[in-house]
């Protein structure tokens, strides 16, 4: 049953990315272009998502377990370490160069823009490389 809820969550997430315009890298770059002609939309996307997810998740978390899965899996790491900062800087640079982050890049696969396939391919190669770098430490 977790497969069904995964699929439905993904579809609604993809719809949200589409309605909000976040599948358009130009719109994301418009948000990052603060010092010139600024499009604050992305900030409203994040505020909308947080306003819904935050309270609902705090209320639901009091239950003993999720509906389909056996237990809640919440990130336990609380360390502000070098990896967190270096990773965020690398991600920010790639995001700023293209206007693409993982969610919209994967959703945009269905828009049949072949340029995005190349980005997604190298993003997955990047996951492997990142995993390799982490496992060596």
């Amino acid at each position: 049953m977790t497969k069904l809820s995964s699929l439905i969550s993904g579809i609604i997430f993809g719809l949200g990315l589409t309605i909000s315009g976040m599948v358009n890298p130009q719109k994301v770059l418009g948000f990052l272009n603060i010092f010139d002609a600024w499009d604050p939309s992305l900030m409203f996307v994040m505020i909308g998502a947080i306003l819904i997810f935050s309270p609902l998740h705090f209320i639901f978390k009091r239950k003993s377990r999720p509906i389909f899965a056996e237990n809640f899996i919440v990130p336990a790491n609380k360390n502000i370490n070098k990896n967190l900062i270096i990773g965020a800087i690398m991600f920010g640079a790639g995001w700023g160069l293209t206007g693409l982050c993982p969610g919209p890049a994967i959703s945009a696969i269905s828009l049949l823009n072949t340029d995005v396939y190349l980005f997604v391919l190298f993003m997955f190669i990047g996951f492997y490389l990142g995993n390799f770098i982490q496992s060596r430490k």
Binding site: I86, M90, F91, A93, G94, W95, A105, I125, G126, L129
Partner: peptide, 13 residues
């Protein structure tokens, strides 16, 4: 861009 996003999000969790 793809490599930076892939490696960066993996290392930065």
């Amino acid at each position: 861009g793809g490599l930076l996003v892939g490696v960066g999000t993996k290392i930065g969790s």
